[in-house]
């Protein structure tokens, strides 16, 4: 099996695990973990093809994705903590914007 097939297989399986967590888990935090996994699966391809095709744009994009994911995690966790004050903080109860 060639390196690119290995990376393809790993990134798709990781992406599908993240997608399954996002779709199937009930807790908001578990969904956020699934989202992080999906972002990392995409990042894996950026890094691999940056190296395979000797084009640093792949690695540059991976660095930006890393930074944007950090910002996304911070905001997501803040929302989850704010939602935790509700009686039943799960995805079914979050339906309307207040105010």
């Amino acid at each position: 099996m060639t390196p690119d097939r290995v990376v393809w297989l790993v990134s798709v399986l990781l992406f599908l695990c993240g997608l399954a967590a996002l779709l199937l888990r009930r807790q908001l935090l578990a969904m956020l973990l699934g989202l992080e996994l999906m972002i990392n699966a995409a990042n894996l391809n950026f890094v691999f093809y940056g190296r395979e095709w000797s084009d640093a744009a792949g690695w540059t994009s991976a660095l930006w994705v890393l930074a944007a994911a950090a910002a996304e995690a911070v905001v997501g966790l803040t929302l989850i903590l704010a939602l935790n004050r509700l009686a039943e903080p799960d995805t079914d109860s979050v339906r309307e914007l207040e105010g």
Partner: peptide, 9 residues
């Protein structure tokens, strides 16, 4: 990575 991703789920 895949094994622990499934475990995470």
């Amino acid at each position: 990575a895949v094994i622990f991703a499934v475990l995470m789920l």
